[in-house]
């Protein structure tokens, strides 16, 4: 694997009034890797991610995403990334086809491109029969897979997933991770937040945020060795307890 840096973060800080949500974090993400961004609720991972995708301005520090500064080249950053939010975020009252067309449209894909992509995507996901059904009528697992595919529609270099598997069953989660792997194999960088520690094991490298600071960053295996525990779950607990 080429070790080309695709995200570079230097001393990134975000303060809300007197509260420091993200405190001086620095890390790099390499091209094509699956980067797990872990942390308890309120540890600042969503805030950090929001700065990277250009919808929140850093208080200080800098971040380059796909080579563009998130402060000054927000527009270019947005073009290079895909994003799937925590909440399922497609239009329930539009059909699958309409949703794909819409999101393709806002990323500036041409009509022909959208048509081809829709066809391919629908076959991959096995949604041929329901393409004209309203998205609202789909089961959650399908919605999430669809949502992921839509985030990839414009072939971004990096895709940000914010707790993509919240509330779905283990089988669907498994399938979802298979999709993530497939995408990573194509060279797309995956930046994923989660608090399922078993999912952390699937990542190439993980960072663990505790109270606005990155406490650990390594491959899951190295982390387990370092903290001398059997699973990522224990690594996480150990780190979180140390702070308390």
């Amino acid at each position: 694997m080429t070790k080309e840096k695709i995200i570079e973060v230097h001393n990134l800080t975000k303060r809300f009034g007197g509260f420091t949500a993200v405190n001086n974090i620095s890390f790099d993400v390499f091209e094509g890797e699956i980067f797990g961004f872990l942390g308890a609720n309120g540890a600042g991972k969503t805030t950090a991610m929001k700065m990277l995708i250009g919808i929140s301005n850093p208080t200080s520090g800098e971040a380059l995403v796909a080579g563009f500064d998130v402060k000054t080249k927000t527009e270019m950053v947005k073009r290079s990334i895909g994003y799937m939010s925590q909440k399922f975020s497609m239009y329930d009252d539009l059909t699958i086809k309409e949703n794909i067309t819409f999101f393709g449209g806002i990323y500036g894909l041409s009509r022909i491109q959208i048509k081809e992509k829709t066809k391919k995507l629908v076959i991959e996901l096995g949604l041929e029969d329901v393409i004209d059904k309203l998205v609202g009528s789909l089961p959650l697992g399908w919605k999430q897979k669809l949502s992921f595919s839509v985030a990839l529609l414009h072939e971004p270099k990096i895709v940000f997933l914010d707790e993509p598997t919240g509330g779905v069953d283990p089988i669907t989660r498994r399938q979802f991770w298979e999709m993530i792997y497939a995408e990573a194999n194509k060279g797309t960088t995956i930046f994923v937040t989660t608090h399922y520690m078993d999912e952390a094991e699937y990542c190439d490298r993980v960072s663990i945020m505790v109270e606005g600071v990155i406490e650990a960053l390594d491959t899951p295996n190295n982390l387990k060795t370092k903290y001398n525990v059997a699973s990522m779950n224990d690594v996480f607990l150990k780190l979180a307890r140390n702070v308390e």
Partner: peptide
Amino acid sequence: ELGTMEVLLVSPL
């Protein structure tokens, strides 16, 4: 509420 606003804001729009 739907969360689509966030997605729209992340898009190049």
